[in-house]
Write a protein that binds this DNA or RNA. Structure first.
Lengths: 130, 130
DNA sequence: TGATAATATGAGTTGAGGCTCATATGAATA
DNA sequence: TATTCATATGAGCCTCAACTCATATTATCA
């Protein structure tokens, strides 16, 4: 019962979810997303990322490690520097697709970021409990 | 300096990130991903999701709310039931694309889920500190 | 209208993860 | 080889979010 696989075409099976979830978790952190976008299509040393983001060196190192272990970036030593690069730029295309989907289905960024609502248009009328 | 926008074609700007991040965070939780995949292309009442996932009613309600506020699902009352549906099935296509990308760039699911490594092939040789 | 079923909410607890500090490691250079 | 630069690591702190419990809300039906 815990597998929750639905044999509907277009649906994602258990193994798919197993692969997707850690990747999505890695991407679902604002500083990591920033770092990934900073890298863009170029290979850059950690120092560049630190300067571009304004984050602490230790923090950048931490996030780069998560991105690396999630399989999004690879490293390459060049002299004293370690360069970080996107494993494959096609990833940006996929993120663009998701962004476009969100733009098409969310009225505004503000609403997307900070939304409070109830299903079925019910209003918030709950009192305090004793 | 904090915007971290890189004028490289194919890169994601600050506003794109702002829209992407809450969506990715919503998807980057295993139970939520399961629930979303359980819904698939069908509209289903909460009871169905509870049964399919084996999660607590309160917990399912909590996650469905997050998915709803993130703009992934919408609700529709039918008698005593509230049906949850994917806002748009194209989302599944995008998730499939991401899954395919991961399959192509990650050697195995195990490695993706539980990876320990160091950049540039360095070995773990750090002792305890005093 | 009272009972029941379906679902949502708020408060509280707990664990995971993001951040920082101190420090280790490895490469380059004097 | 001593120093400096670039980067990584481990431990600890602290916040946030996932989960549970108790309960409220809404709809249906007897």
């Amino acid at each position: 019962m815990n597998n929750c696989t639905c044999p509907v075409p277009g649906t994602l099976e258990h193994d798919d979810q197993k692969r997707l979830f850690p990747a999505l978790r890695a991407l679902g952190e604002p500083n990591r997303l920033r770092i990934l976008c900073c890298l863009g299509l170029e290979c850059r040393p950690v120092t560049d990322v630190i300067e571009a983001t304004g984050l602490e060196q230790t923090n950048v190192s931490f996030h780069l490690r998560v991105l690396r272990e999630a399989g999004f970036v690879r490293t390459e030593r060049r002299g004293p520097f370690i360069y970080y690069c996107l494993v494959d730029s096609e990833l940006l295309r996929i993120l663009h697709d998701l962004k476009d989907w969100l733009s098409a289905h969310q009225p505004s960024v503000e609403r997307a970021v900070n939304q409070r609502s109830r299903p079925d248009g019910r209003k918030l009328t709950i009192g305090t409990r004793g």
